[in-house]
């Protein structure tokens, strides 16, 4: 128990039970309570405390402004990114969004036909998302002026997600398609053969 608490206890006990204390003890306590404080020093302490609070308040205000500007920037950026994703189907995040891309005549899940590409694609890129290999290769074959032959009928219905850039050569496209484990395409001068 600290001395301060002891003195407090004594003070409150003197208040409640003055009969237990001598006049001298009460006089001493009253002298202590009526000590004249150093008012000038107290004012200086108050000024220092007030300045500190003012600085802290000002600093907090600046922090809030910076935070608000930062959050604003993030929100604007997020809106911009969201807008880009909504209007740029190169992203595969929402191909079935508010501006649906027409599906192929065969009704595949997602298919961006050649005639629409100028409207919806950047840098002559097409996205095949869960589209049968048959449809993909016919579209590509038309573009590269070759024919397609399926040696294995089941291969027609294999579905892939594939991004096709028209700027790529046919050899390169075949090479990339052959990276799929289930696909084996042979490139001939005028024909693509799917084995």
């Amino acid at each position: 128990m600290s001395s301060l608490d002891d003195n407090k206890r004594l003070f409150f006990d003197m208040q409640e039970h003055p009969e237990n204390y001598s006049d001298d003890q009460l006089e001493t306590m009253m002298d202590e309570l009526d000590q004249v404080p150093d008012v000038d020093a107290a004012w200086q302490r108050l000024e220092v405390k007030d300045e500190r609070i003012e600085k802290r308040t000002s600093f907090n205000l600046q922090l809030r402004k910076i935070a608000a500007a930062f959050i604003g920037t993030i929100i604007v950026s997020a809106i911009a990114i969201a807008a880009i994703h909504l209007w740029n189907p190169v992203s595969d995040s929402n191909p079935k969004g508010e501006n649906p891309i027409p599906t192929s005549p065969r009704g595949e899940d997602t298919y961006y036909p050649k005639e629409k590409k100028q409207d919806v694609l950047q840098a002559d890129t097409l996205i095949f998302d869960n589209v049968p290999l048959d449809t993909m290769l016919r579209e590509m074959a038309d573009y590269y002026h070759v024919s397609v032959e399926f040696k294995r009928e089941k291969a027609r219905q294999l579905r892939f997600h594939f991004i096709w850039k028209h700027s790529e050569s046919l050899d390169r496209v075949v090479e990339r398609l052959n990276n799929f484990e289930a696909v084996n395409i042979v490139r001939e001068p005028e024909k693509l053969i799917v084995r």
Binding site: M14, Q15, H17, P18, L26, E27, M30
Partner: peptide, 10 residues
């Protein structure tokens, strides 16, 4: 007296 004041306040 001051002591009387203390006792009144008490």
């Amino acid at each position: 007296s001051r002591v009387a004041v203390w006792k009144h306040l008490s």
